[in-house]
Amino acid sequence: MDLLLERLVSGLTNGSVYALLALALVVVFRGSGTINFAQGELALFTTFVAWWLTTLGSPVWLAVLASIALGFVLGAGIERLLVRPVQRKNDTAVLIVALGLFTGLNALDALLFGTETKVMPSPFPNGLDDYVSLGGARLYGDALGVWVVLVVLVGLVSLLFRRTRVGLHMRAVADNPESAALAGVPTSRVLALGWGLSGAIGGLAGVLVTPLAPQQLSLTTMFTVFIAASAAALFGGLDSLGGAIVGGLVIGVLEALVTGYVPALGGAMQQTTVLVVIVLILLVRPTGLFGSRRLERV
């Protein structure tokens, strides 16, 4: 029983990070109808910068803020300079740009920060004694911290979309960019803002995942997270905030349980298992479980 609970806790914690990055993917997709395949590597880059700041003696919270800010600037810049000019051509052009960013950023990380594994300090108390007991399972500080961040962030993002002018404009551009422009919405600023927001969320996800990930901060850290996050976003149909959150948590728990109870599939086959589940979901519901509309515009 304790073991199950502990596995659930660890699954929910990893799942929260997946959900965060999935949220970033959904924000981009809702804004501009594309998947940012470089989202994970973008987050890895900002996280490396945050780590580098901590080695210079910066407090962790400041490094986290820097990662978020850098994520915003990079996200908005990429949209403005690299994605928008080619978006008119086709999906493939955008994907190839993203693949270029993917390889380029990862190699840049290696060049700037070296290939050895690093230890990113956690922004939350994560000592051996920093836990609360819950039905026999230990809830450690950083797990709790990640959960709180996820809840707060989801609240903020949905407030942004539901209650603010900017959020309204983002929804309008996602619905129909031409009509939104004709109604006076500055579409280009809104699009850049969406990518910036997504980059910032990714920057936050990066600094939260690395203290939890078993291999700490390495060049491959965010890739596995990105795979899980894109599966989570797909689970929700790519355009549903709630779907991405549920998807992220489900995948996190699923992974933990599979690893714990089905050793034949666990460990080495973790990602494959998750991905097979997602592909099956897609086959049954081509727009995900929470997808609200037909996504291919004709």
Binding site: L168, R171, N176, S179, A180, A183, G184, P186
Partner: peptide, 22 residues
């Protein structure tokens, strides 16, 4: 615009607010 350009997934009230974007 021709064809009305309704923002179909937004509510009627939200559509009006988008019109006040400037």
């Amino acid at each position: 615009p021709q064809g009305r350009g309704t923002l179909a997934t937004l509510s009627v009230l939200d559509n009006l607010h988008v019109g006040a974007a400037t």
